[in-house]
Amino acid sequence: MTECPECGATINLPPGTEVGEIITCPDCGVELEVVSLNPPSLELAPQVEEDWGE
């Protein structure tokens, strides 16, 4: 159980969630990055401009 850093909603990480995974906050819809599992912690996902590099 952890909180959305944007809107504070409590978020339950489903089993099988991996570190580095991007999930969407069910309340405010912002994209969050799973930074660690125990303790579970989330950060705003990095904004990456669409890229088509090598």
Binding site: E18, G20, E21, I22, E31, E33, A45, P46, V48, D51, G53, E54
Partner: peptide, 23 residues
Amino acid sequence: RKGVIIAQEGEKKKVLKGDYGGT
């Protein structure tokens, strides 16, 4: 430097850090 790539793995989206790709 991009530093970060967002990868699509199945329906999961993943953040890959430490990338030395660039524009």
